[in-house]
Simulated scan of single mutants.
Amino acid sequence: MALEKKRWRKRAVIAAVIILPLIYSVFFLSAFWDPYSKLEKLPVAFVNQDQGAVINGKSRNLGNEITEELKSDENIKWVLTTDAEAKTGIQNREYYAEVSIPADFS
């Protein structure tokens, strides 16, 4: 009886040594197999404070031009917001990051 318990324990230990790393690798590696597959769900706050400027005799607002391009970008979930809302959203973990264009960008 004692010999049978000893064999059972050895088999249990061997099974654990084999199965636990396999379970760990499935969960760990699944994050690295395709890290870009869910970026469109990643909320990033985008703040445009650009006031515009006269460039080569033409009035331009480069911040607005970038904002218009980001509206059509579906690779990341851009959330157009104000600076205060972005800071609050970062603190409350509503946004993963903040991208801000300063007032004197143009």
Rank of each mutant, 00 (worst) to 15 (best):
Ser30Thr: 08
Ile76Ser: 00
Ser106Lys: 03
Asp50Asn: 08
Leu29Arg: 03
Val13Gly: 02
Ala2Asn: 11
Trp78Val: 10
Ala16Val: 11
Ser106Tyr: 13
Met1Gln: 10
Leu22Val: 15
Phe105Leu: 05
Ser25Asn: 11
Leu22Ile: 15
Lys87Asp: 12
Ile90Asn: 00
Tyr36Phe: 09
Val54Glu: 13
Lys77Phe: 03
Ser59Leu: 07
Val17Tyr: 02
Ile19Val: 12
Ile19Asp: 03
Ile90Gly: 00
Ala84Phe: 15
Pro43Val: 15
Ala86Glu: 07
Gly57Pro: 06
Ser25Glu: 09
Leu39His: 03
Leu42Ser: 02
Pro35Val: 10
Glu94Ile: 10
Ile18Ser: 02
Trp8Lys: 10
Gln91Ile: 07
Ser25Ala: 08
Thr82Gly: 11
Arg11Gly: 13
Ala45Asp: 05
Glu74Arg: 11
Asn75Ile: 12
Glu40Trp: 06
Val47His: 01
Asn92Met: 14
Phe28Pro: 08
Ala31Lys: 08
Asp83Trp: 15
Glu40Phe: 04
Leu80His: 06
Asn75Glu: 06
Gly63Asp: 13
Gly57Ala: 07
Lys5Thr: 14
Ala2Ser: 07
Asp104Ser: 15
Asp104Ala: 08
Leu70Met: 07
Asp83His: 14
Glu98Ile: 06
Gly63Lys: 01
Asp34Asn: 08
Ser25Arg: 05
Arg11Leu: 06
Ala16Thr: 10
Leu42Trp: 06
Pro102Met: 05
Asp50Cys: 14
Gly52Met: 14
Ser25Val: 07
Gly52Leu: 11
Asn56Phe: 13
Ala84Lys: 14
Gly57Arg: 08
Arg7Cys: 04
Lys87His: 05
Ala84Ser: 12
Thr81Gln: 00
Tyr95Asn: 02
Asp73Pro: 09
Glu40Asp: 06
Val17Gln: 02
Arg9Tyr: 12
Leu3Trp: 05
Glu65Asn: 09
Ala84Trp: 10
Glu94Val: 11
Val13Trp: 09
Val54His: 04
Asp34Thr: 07
Ala31Phe: 09
Val26Glu: 11
Leu3Gln: 14
Pro102Thr: 11
Gly52Gln: 09
Ser25Lys: 08
Ile23Asn: 08
Leu20Ser: 07
Asn75Lys: 13
Thr81Ser: 00
Pro21His: 09
Ser37Arg: 09
Gln51Asp: 14
Val99Tyr: 03
Trp78Leu: 01
Thr67Trp: 06
Gln49Val: 01
Glu85Ile: 10
Gln49Ser: 14
Gly63Thr: 01
Pro21Leu: 14
Thr88Phe: 02
Thr67Val: 07
Lys5Ala: 13
Lys41Ile: 07
Gly52Asp: 08
Thr81Lys: 00
Val99Cys: 02
